[in-house]
Amino acid sequence: MRLDLTHIQRWIEPGSRVLDLGCGNGEFLQRLAKERQVRGLGLEIDPDKITNAVSRGLDIVEQDMDAGLDNFPDQSFDTVVMAHALQAVHYPDRVLEEMLRIGRQGIVTFPNFAHWRCRLYLGSRGRMPVSRFMPYNWYDTPNIHFCTVTDFEALCEERGIRILARDMVGNTLRRPLLASAWPNLFAVTAIYLISR
């Protein structure tokens, strides 16, 4: 279980309806179903991940977020989750707007591109960072829209999106203080609970 998913769980009400955009193999939805008794639906486009998620007993719809989400009615879910996919969609701003049209609240997680290691890598080598967390070369990566904690909050401000809570995850569990105090420098992963 990825660290950011553990954080998300407490924001999800038991028995609520959850849409997971880019649900992967459904690990998170399965856990929510078990521990929070949610009624979940996952969206995914990778065939093997879909089969894997279905074998966990989950409902999965093969659908590409970049082609739109207008088949989902307004306010039809309690929570719409998008974990580590914001940086991989064509129009992150539109997806955010759609999340809050479909759901009462949204939960977004993304890798913070302004983490000091990224800055150091880019600053010292002058090349796009490649690491354990971002293992792709710039020319062959699903991550086409990297952003920083500050970028994201600026976008929310501009679009009138309310940040209800945020959680910053540092590169080790023992040092959460740095990540909370200076998130744009020390957060590896940013987690936001948002609403209209």
Partner: peptide, 14 residues
């Protein structure tokens, strides 16, 4: 599938 989603029925699609 879209009708099932809108009707809040459990659905899996590929």
């Amino acid at each position: 599938v879209d009708a099932l989603i809108a009707a809040d029925r459990p659905v899996t699609y590929a």
